[in-house]
Design a protein around this nucleic acid. Structure first.
Length: 1069
RNA sequence: GGGCGGAUAGCUCAGGGGUAGAGCGUCGCCCUUACAAGGCGAGGGUCGCAGGUUCGAAGCCUGCUCCGCCCACCA
């Protein structure tokens, strides 16, 4: 395995295509009914063959594939069964539309047979495309068992079910008021009708009472239906109209006499005028009223909603034209009393979008009450459970109020109803009046014609969990193995359409629930939370995300944000995103940016693997359980322990269907622990000379990658297979798809290792904070000191310096008990330790002071917050002792922290410069010195400075040193943090300068106002010091303003200071 | 009209009586030899509003306001 095999960044397109094909060629997903393993079956909710898949389908496929792959790796005999749905109305519509567009023909122009051929051709094209899309998504479906709802086998099941339900008295034919779609010219079920709040008009019309001057004012939103009125209803208790009950009104425009009836159910006396016109043939309420009162039912519309022969002069008008004309005529007769805006729920066909026209017609119905009762009971008994369980109530409520299901559709595309009508003597068939015979075949005797109608698409869908497994052959192995399915996974939008009906049919025909668990996922919406729909133009093709897309393929909203189109994200990234965003009970707002984030995650994984493979040498894991057979380093033991936690959490999350929890566990482990910490720590041994340590680290890397790839595989199948295959290790199976899903293993847990890592992480973190806040370049090596009174902490940090130092860029790390703090150092006060980074000569200490003040402020604020609790005496009394104790401890801790922070602040505080006035003249040395110091630049490498300075000293005494020499020495001391000494040298320099130049007068310049010009010291030292290279480079370790405290008068030899960490130069020069 | 969700950082969302979290975005320093699709740091929130319960509420209760969805025959 050489790194040359892995490209620098992950390129999903090639990898995914390759594995998709290999998996299928290997038949890894073909289920075996003879397997001894426990069964696990999900049937894919069959997508409509109307078009291609959208993101909702991608979510469905992702979740189901995660479940299936997870179970497969857990040793289950998995069947994930694919299929497509003929989607009667929807598909017929799109094909008709296509036909009209391309050939300007209707389906009637072609005739039923020829039209159906077209639909089959369409089905073939889109069915294949759907299959292809699923393969690209990585769905591990068993394509050998692919089904279509109009397959021979499924069709047989449909017929069988229809006939048997009829025999059981659960299917009947009746002439009732149904929801009619006048465009599609078919009946619809209640579920296919959508009520939409509409701004309409409420018209009041006067109906003259027969033989009376009185008029009854009726209100209506549909005046044209008055042509079919057969009564006027009032409330029986309504005093206004009691005297009219039993009389007639004369229907305006029509002249028909219709009765005034009393009906307490229909009429709300408080609404409007309290008088309701009754049109039993065109309104559901009126229909019920008509049945109650035995009213005639006059159908006034044709099947396309034009007024028919019953509409007298209005015959031939389309329903809305008729409305207009009726209103005009009423107005002319002065019978139109009022017209006002009115909000009403308008019933529209879900498919064609036009208002449905309630219509009397003979249709087939499924009697649902008895079926629903069993379904309700099964859920109540817990034989099927809903996840999330909030849907149980929804499911129950619908089934408790279920109406009979109108299953016949006046379409061509679908399962033709297995019922036969007698051919009359004149070779005609009366579908309205004659009684059909139900059976798979026509009766032997006589001439019969099959019912031209087809079944509701959902009728065949309702059988899906068993019709796909070979039913009605009850001996089918597949059926015996995988019924009931373990999981039904689908969107909550079809809980009634599909889930409830599968429950009813499954229980009736298989005598058992169709599935044990129903997982209902959320709806996928666009970034703004709007439903994706073609009309809104915000539909994104999942393939465009996976494979990339030029801008012209994208919906406008996306195009605006990505004017150059989309880069390929890969199926893994899309899947991971969907999994991460799937939150129970909440819709998914999918954003491209988010997918981009997970694409970056894939790349991260890829590079982690690449790193490992580049550093494995000829390492080959031979398959033995090596973890306890090798001496492992702390880092090794730590990551293995963390890995085991991730294994446990991922498995538990999946058990709960908490896909987003699993995803974030994996993300956090892989990126936040494995990459950020372990890989960084592993570099020490990988690049080092300790062969054994190297071997252990290599083994650990391979072990972790193997496990974590398997863990991640259900979410991101492609990249995990690609990496897994490259790991140098023995395998018992040849694909990760069938490798074992990792199980928690106590042997990997190592609490000692985790505990030991803690202080190390704290130190690294602390130094990084200081570095970050001081804007130190990562390449700049610095020193740090850790002080702690905890021997364990000290021991650990001391022992594992090799872990700490590279991770926070240290040249030196010292560990001490709490004690004298290094001067001029930034400090981080952490739990159990204090971390110091000397900054003098590196960075502006003023910034560090600001930082410390901010830290103090934070701690003070927190104390104030906690203390507020104690102001209430009840708190200490009533709150649990441990809580109170915790708060007390926290206050103490914070106070300690503040103290330490303040100490440090003091230590690096600018102090007054007190310079003894020089003998010579009126020069204000103090001011000059301050000014000088305020701009001093100290080179980054104090060692060099010290050397130079001491060399100077060694050459002789300080006598005769020039002012420049003193300056150099001062700079050197600054670099060492020896402020007093530095000040002394600078003072000496000043004195020299004063001596060297003519006395000049100086106005009392404010120290602060000192100009920030490049100080001479810098120039001077820069001129002759090697370290000037560093100083002059862009790293700019500038110390402005360091100030002395004491009198500068020389009192002793310059070199030494108690806390000096850099004593005399050890290296000679 | 009923029912169910939701409202927490600029965005997308976790959390669920006791110190407010993540990812993305933003800002700062860095092309450090796995990864710039990267590293390290930082800033950012009176947890929709109002009451109540409690020692303590973002969380529990009540009411309200918005948003979304589902169901429903007021002409």
């Amino acid at each position: 395995m050489s790194s040359a095999e892995l490209s620098k960044s992950y390129e999903p397109t090639e990898v995914e295509a390759r594995w998709s094909k290999e998996w299928l060629d290997a038949g890894l997903f073909t289920a075996d009914p003879d397997s001894k393993k426990p069964p696990f079956c999900i049937v894919l909710p069959p997508p409509n063959v109307t078009g291609s898949l959208h993101l909702g389908h991608a979510l469905t496929a992702t979740i189901q594939d995660i479940l299936t792959r997870w179970k497969r790796m857990n040793g289950f005999n998995c069947l994930w069964l694919p299929g497509t749905d003929h989607a009667g109305i929807a598909t017929q519509m799109v094909v008709e539309k296509e036909l009209m567009k391309t050939e300007k023909k209707t389906r009637h122009d072609l005739g039923r047979e020829a039209f159906l051929e077209r639909v089959w051709a369409w089905k073939k094209q889109y069915g294949e495309r759907i299959g292809q899309q699923h393969r690209i998504l990585g769905a591990s479906l068993d394509w050998s068992r692919e089904r279509f709802t109009m397959d021979a086998g499924v069709s047989e099941a449909v017929k069988e079910v229809f006939v048997r339900l009829h025999k059981d008295g659960l299917i009947y034919r009746a002439n009732r008021l149904i929801n009619w779609d006048p465009v599609l010219r078919t009946a619809l079920s209640d579920l296919e009708v959508e009520n939409e709040d509409t701004n309409g008009t409420l018209w009041s019309i006067a109906y003259p009472v027969e033989d009376s001057a009185e008029k009854l004012i009726v209100a209506t939103t549909r005046p044209e239906t008055m042509l079919g009125d057969t009564a006027v209803a009032v409330h029986p208790e309504d005093e206004r109209y009691k005297h009219l009950i039993g009389k007639n009104v004369v229907l305006p425009l029509v002249g028909r006499k219709i009765p005034i009836i009393a009906d307490g159910q229909l009429v709300d006396p408080k609404f409007g005028t309290g008088v309701v016109k009754v049109t039993p043939a065109h309104d559901h309420n009126d229909y019920a009223t008509g049945l109650r009162h035995g009213l005639p039912m006059i159908n006034i519309f044709t099947e396309t909603a034009f007024v028919n022969e019953n509409g007298g002069p209005y015959q031939g008008l389309e329903r809305f034209a008729a409305r207009k004309k009726v209103l005009e005529d009423l107005k002319a007769l002065e019978l139109l009393v009022e017209e006002k805006p009115h909000k009403l729920p308008l019933a529209k066909s879900q498919r064609s979008g036009v208002p449905v026209e309630p219509r009397l017609s003979p249709q087939w119905y499924v009697k649902t009450k008895p079926l629903a009762e069993r379904a309700l009971k099964a859920v109540a008994d817990g034989r099927t459970r809903f996840v999330p369980d909030q849907w149980t109530a929804t499911f129950n409520r619908w089934l408790e109020n279920i109406q009979d299901w109108c299953v016949s559709r006046q379409l061509w595309w679908g399962h033709q109803i297995p019922a036969w009508f007698p051919v009359g003597p004149d070779s005609t068939v009366d579908f309205e009046k004659s009684t059909p015979v139900v059976g798979k075949e026509p009766p032997a005797e006589g001439q019969w014609v099959q019912d031209p109608d087809v079944l509701d698409t959902w009728f065949s869908s309702a059988l899906w969990p068993f019709s796909t497994l070979g039913w009605p052959d009850v001996n089918s192995k597949d059926l015996k193995t995988w019924y009931p399915n373990q999981v039904m996974e689908t969107g909550h939008d079809i809980i009634f359409f599909w889930v409830a009906r599968m429950m009813m049919m499954g229980l009736h025909f298989m005598d058992d629930v169709p599935f044990r668990t129903v997982y209902l996922h959320a709806m996928v919406r666009d970034e703004k939370g709007e439903k994706m729909s073609k009309t809104k133009g915000n539909v994104i093709d999942p393939l465009d995300i996976i494979q990339g897309a030029p801008p012209e393929r994208l919906p406008a909203s996306i195009k605006n944000k990505f004017p150059k189109g989309l880069e390929p994200m890969g199926a893994d990234a899309l899947r991971f995103t969907l999994a991460a965003l799937t939150q129970q009970g909440r819709d998914i707002k999918l954003s491209i940016d988010r997918i981009g984030g997970y694409k970056a995650f894939c790349n991260k994984i890829w590079n982690a693997a690449r790193f490992a493979l580049m550093n494995l040498g000829d390492f080959q894991e031979d398959g033995r359980v090596f973890i306890r057979e090798r001496p492992l380093s702390l880092a090794d033991r730590w990551i293995l322990s963390r890995l085991d936690v991730a294994v446990r959490e991922t498995g538990e999350a999946l058990e709960r269907y908490a896909f987003s929890d699993a995803a974030s566990t994996l993300y956090q482990f892989l990126w936040g622990e494995f990459c950020d910490w372990y890989i960084e720590l592993s570099k020490g041994s990988l690049y080092g000379d300790d062969a054994q340590a190297k071997e252990s680290t290599r083994a650990t890397l391979v072990f972790c990658l193997d496990r974590v790839m398997r863990l991640l595989h259900p979410f991101a199948p492609f990249i995990t297979e690609e990496i897994w295959q490259k790991l140098p290790m023995a395998r018992t199976v040849n694909s990760i798809c069938i490798a074992e899903f990792p199980k928690p293993d106590e042997r990997l847990r190592d609490e000692t290792a985790e505990r030991t890592m803690e202080p190390l992480i704290t130190v690294i973190d602390g130094v990084r904070t200081i570095r970050g806040e001081s804007n130190l370049a990562p390449s700049l090596r610095i020193e740090a000191m850790v002080q702690s009174d905890d021997v364990t902490v000290r021991g650990t940090v001391e022992t594992y310096k090799r872990y700490v130092m590279p991770l926070c860029g240290l040249a030196k790390l010292s560990v001490e008990p709490l004690g004298t703090k290094p001067p001029q150092a930034a400090a981080e006060i952490r739990k159990g330790m204090e971390i110091f980074v000397p900054l003098a000569g590196i960075v502006d200490l003023a910034e560090e002071r600001e930082r410390l003040k901010k830290e103090i402020g934070k701690s003070e604020a927190e104390i104030a917050q906690i203390q507020k609790k104690f102001e209430n005496p009840n708190y200490a009394q009533r709150a649990p002792a441990d809580v109170v104790e915790k708060d007390r401890a926290r206050i103490a801790e914070l106070e300690g922290r503040i103290g330490k922070l303040q100490d440090n602040l003091k230590r690096i505080a600018p102090v007054e410069v007190k310079v003894a006035p020089p003998a010579a003249g009126p020069v204000n040395l103090e001011e000059e010195l301050k000014e000088e110091l305020s701009g001093v630049t100290v080179p980054a490498d104090p060692d060099q400075q010290v050397k130079e300075a001491l060399d100077k000293l060694r050459e002789g005494t300080k006598e005769g040193l020039s002012s420049q020499d003193h300056r150099d020495l001062g700079v050197a001391y600054m670099g060492m943090g020896l402020v007093d000494d530095a000040v002394r040298e600078f003072n000496a320099a000043k004195e020299e300068e004063v001596a060297e130049r003519p006395v000049k007068k100086k106005p009392a310049a404010k120290p602060k106002a000192a100009p920030k010009k490049t100080p001479t010291a810098t120039k001077a030292s820069g001129k002759k010091q090697p370290s000037a290279k560093k100083a002059a480079s862009k790293k700019k370790p500038v110390a402005k303003k360091a100030a002395p405290k004491k009198k500068p008068a020389a009192k002793k030899a310059p070199v030494k200071k108690p806390s000096a960490k850099k004593p005399a130069p050890k290296k000679k020069r």
